[in-house]
Nucleic acid binder design. Structure first.
Lengths: 243, 243
DNA sequence: GACTGATAAATGTCAGACATATAAATGTAT
DNA sequence: ATACATTTATATGTCTGACATTTATCAGTC
C-alpha cells in the first residue's frame, strides 16, 4: 500500500487511493487505527499537509473518522447504512439535475424499483411501518398543508413502505431513488383534486400492505406512477403554454 | 454560503458543507469556477491549507474538479453517471462487508431490483445488449474459466440486462446492487454442474428478453435467485462442517 | 484513595515560501 | 503581417516550521 510513482502531481489523490484500496481489500479492518499523520508523511515521503488532504478525501467518503487527543488519530470507519444514505441522496439528486434527466425517466426508475419492494413489504410489514404510513396519509389530507410539506410527507410514506421489507440493502438503494425525486416533485403545484387522487392511492396501497396483498400493492404503485406522470405532464404543458 | 460559527474545529468540513449546499441548491451552476483558494481563504477567514482540505473533500465526491495554471481553479463538476458508478460500487461493497449483511439479504435485494428491470428490458432491449448477453453466456461455458472470471462474466451479463432498459437511472442504481455482490459470489466454488445450471437460466433469460417476453424473463431471474441462494447455502454448510 | 496538575501525543490551524503548470501577453524573426 | 519563441502573471501543488487544542496518562498532594 506504499507505492507512489515519481509523478509529483496529485500526490494526495494517490495516497487516498492507496489507503482506500487497502480498506476495500480488507488489509485495514474496521476500527483499526492508521499511522499518525507524521508517520504516514514519512512512509509516503511527503509532507503532512499532503497526507492531511488525502485523509480528508477519505473522510468525505466516510471511510475514516478522526479523533483528536493523545490516543487519537484516523480510524477505519464502520460504514453504517444511515451514514451512506446522505451520500447516496446527494449524488442521486445531483445526477438527476445535472444530466437533465427527464421527469419520466426518473419516475419510471423510481416506481419500478419501488414495485420490486411491494411483495416483500406486504409479507413482512410491521405494525410500526403501517402506523407510519397511516400517519402520513392523515397528514397529507390536512387542508393547510404546503406543497413542500406534502412532498416531504410523500417521501416519508414511501420510505416507510420500503423499510417495511425489513431488508436494509433495499432501504439503502431506494433512499436515493425516492429522495432524489423530491426536487422534481417540488416543481409541481398540487391542486386539491390532485392531492385527493394521490391520497386515495396511498390509502389503497396501505390497505393492500396491511392485508398482505402484494398484488394490489403493486397495482396501487403502478396507478400512482401513472397518476404522477400525467400530473407532471399537464404541469409541463401548462408551463410551456404560459411562456 | 459564508457562514462559519466561532467553533474553530472542523473548519474544512464546515466550508465543504457550505460549498456543497450551494452546489446542490443550484447557487453554483455546473462548470462555474469557484473563487481561487486565496480568495476563499479570505472570504471564510481561514488559511489556504484549510480551504484546500475543504476542496479535496468535495473533489472526493466528484462535486468539483481542479485545474492548474493561469486560468485554472476549482470548477463545479458535471457529475456523469459513469463517474457515479465507482462511488456507488465502493460504498455498496463496503456496506455489505462491514455490516455483515447475510448473503440471503444481499441476494434478495439484488434480484428484487433486477426483476424490476425485466419488463422494461424485454420491451426495449437493443441488438447490442442482446449480443453482449449472448457473448457472456458463451464465455461462461468455456471449460478452463476460473471462478473469478465466471463471476466477472456474470456481472457483465446482468449489467447488460439492466442497461437494456435504456434507463440510465436504473443502470446507476443497479450498479451498486449487482457489483457489490461480486465479493460474496467470489467466496463460492462453482462445480461444473452449478455452472451449467446458471448458464441454462441465463440462456432462458436471454431468450425471454429477445422474445419480448417479460414474464419468462422475470421467472428466469426468480429461478436464478433460488439457484444462487441454495448454492450459497450448501457452500456455507459444507464450510461450517469442515471447520 | 480521590482529586488536581503536569506531561505527552495527536489532530487542527496558520503563515510564508517555493515549485510547477498553463494561458495570455509580449517580443522577434522570417 | 504572420508565425514562432519568450516572458509574465496567475493559479494550484507542495514543503517547512510553528502554534493551538484536545485528550489520555502519569505524577503528586491532600
Amino acid at each position: 500500500m506504499k507505492i507512489d510513482p515519481d509523478n509529483p502531481a496529485d500526490l494526495s489523490a494517490q495516497i487516498a487511493k492507496a489507503i482506500r484500496d487497502a480498506i476495500v481489500a480488507g488489509d485495514l479492518i474496521v476500527h483499526q487505527r492508521l499511522p499518525s499523520e507524521a508517520e504516514l508523511a514519512d512512509q509516503f515521503d511527503v509532507s503532512r499537509p499532503t497526507v492531511r488532504e488525502a485523509l480528508k478525501r477519505l473522510a468525505a467518503q466516510s471511510l475514516i473518522r478522526t479523533q483528536r487527543g493523545a490516543t487519537g488519530g484516523a480510524f477505519v470507519n464502520h460504514l453504517r447504512f444511515e451514514e451512506a444514505y446522505d451520500q447516496q441522496i446527494t449524488t442521486s439528486t445531483l445526477l438527476l439535475s445535472m444530466n437533465a434527466v427527464s421527469f419520466d425517466t426518473a419516475c419510471e426508475a423510481r416506481f419500478a424499483l419501488e414495485r420490486a419492494c411491494a411483495p416483500l413489504a406486504a409479507v413482512r410489514r410491521s405494525p410500526d411501518h403501517l402506523a407510519t404510513m397511516r400517519a402520513e396519509i392523515h397528514r397529507q389530507s390536512q387542508p393547510g398543508l404546503s406543497d413542500e410539506a406534502f412532498c416531504a410527507s410523500d417521501v416519508t410514506f414511501h420510505r416507510a413502505l420500503v423499510d417495511a421489507t425489513g431488508n436494509p440493502v433495499l432501504s439503502y438503494q431506494l433512499a436515493g431513488a425516492v429522495e432524489a425525486m423530491q426536487p422534481l416533485m417540488n416543481m409541481i403545484t398540487f391542486t386539491a383534486r390532485d392531492r385527493s387522487a394521490i391520497i386515495d392511492l396511498h390509502q389503497k396501497i396501505a390497505d393492500a400492505i396491511e392485508a398482505h396483498d402484494e398484488r394490489n400493492a403493486a397495482d396501487g404503485l403502478h396507478a400512482l406512477e401513472v397518476e404522477t406522470r400525467t400530473l407532471a405532464q399537464s404541469v409541463m404543458t401548462a408551463r410551456a403554454a404560459r411562456s
